[in-house]
Nucleic acid binder design. Structure first.
Lengths: 87, 87
DNA sequence: ACCCATTTGTGCGTATGTATA
DNA sequence: TTATACATACGCACAAATGGG
């Protein structure tokens, strides 16, 4: 279970936290909450929002990066890819 | 057997992985690949290089530390001792 | 030129869980 | 039961680059 914002989200207890975070972020990208070209919330923001460790956020973000969903620019942030991969 | 870099190193299958890693690192220190006062590759670097878990790297590094071959400074890294012990 | 907050990158310390022998 | 070895997940600290003022 992960608490963030003002809501409480129930997660599958059997899934790894970083996988759950990754899936939430992926859904936000696919559904357009985070739009192509726009910046993804910073690590510290996501840490506060999801209430998990920064390493865990970084692992989720890394996975999105390797899937081609986002591009990370050091010291600037991560941005949603303009051309989202199929899938 | 541990693969790292471009080479493939055959290890004794009967020896523990952390002992094998420790011995490789020790050899590098004794032979001067890692020189006194200089920093030893980070845990994550060694994880990638040896292809083993971080815990295993840490166990090998801890052994070197207890042998006086290196000194570890939290958040900075491990450094080869200036005065290497005999043996 | 300077400060300063933000952000990612990196590093070690620690605890826990799972599987295996 | 114990030790090994994998991965996950928390914390904490510092560096380096960016951008605003």
């Amino acid at each position: 279970m992960i608490v963030y914002g003002l809501s409480v989200i129930e997660f599958r207890d059997n899934a790894y936290v970083w996988v759950q975070v990754r899936d939430v972020l992926k859904t936000r990208i696919i559904e357009g909450t985070y739009r192509p070209g726009q910046v993804v919330p910073s690590e510290s923001t996501l840490v506060q929002e999801f209430g998990v460790a920064r390493n865990t956020i970084r692992k989720a973000v890394k996975a999105l990066r390797e899937e081609g969903l986002i591009t990370t620019v050091p010291h600037l942030g991560s941005f949603v890819s303009e051309n989202l991969p199929n899938g």
